[in-house]
Amino acid sequence: MENNQHINTFDAMLKQSLEGSQMPVPAGVWEAVGSSIGTKAIVATKIAGLKLLILKTLAGIVLAGGAGFGIYELVKTNTNETVKIDQPIIVNQSSPLEMAIDTVFPAQISESDNTVTRKFVLNEDSMITYSKTETSGAKESENSNFDNNVPKATEVAVPKPLIETKAPEKQVEPNKVAEPTKEAPKTEPIVTPAFPEPPNVFTPDGDGINDCFKIEVENEKMFFLQIFSSEGKKVFETTDKNNCWNGVNMNTGELCKKGLYTYKLLYELNTGFKKKESRWLTLL
């Protein structure tokens, strides 16, 4: 039948013209994608001869300050060398592929005026150790006995490729990690304990990955989370850290539309540490 032949020819030619075709990508897309994937998690990057590795999740909790701009310090625990890094570090999810050499933890974050200092401690023995900031001085813990000699943030010490100095047979001792939130000194108001950064993109599509948004926090005595739509309407509220947001508007019962949301979080730890923060959250 001629009609069918026309159809087949048309379809075949259309398919041939369009299948696998390419088009120039509009400007700005990578930047948007990159900033979105870069901010959600923890990481490995090379800066001035130093290799920062990775924060592994511990009992499902990402022990990390998030990515951000600010002053970064690395402290080698055996020599107290400090390396100041004043460029942003992308903090990403941990990677089994590079989980080998030294381990760096953003142990503490201190804030003053508009400067945030995140302190990383790097131990050649691959033992994860937390440090206090240079201002926390007096109080010591078993994992921070080097602290008294830690130079001020302004004293930049030698950047040196730490990877090569590593003793490869040493093992990471994950148990050492569990302590930081408990050890955060109560008397030091500007020191914050390591706080897990939740992923800022979540996809409530039932695939088991980032389906439900929740905040991981331990040793808290008060917890309050609110999520708002871009129009400022409240879509979720809880005082139970075990409740997660699955993308449903708690007032209407409907699934919220994709887009940007903000969450406001208020918590207080048993150490007396209190924090209030607001962040973006992308619902996909």
């Binding site: 390419q22 990578w30 990481v43 992308i90 990403n92 592929l97």
Partner: peptide
């Protein structure tokens, strides 16, 4: 990309974005 290597992330984008954009 799984290792969160920024160069790989960008390379993956550059490789496939024109086809995916079409």
């Amino acid at each position: 990309c799984l290792a969160q290597n920024p160069k790989s992330q960008k390379a993956l984008f550059d490789t496939f974005a024109p086809t995916m954009y079409a």
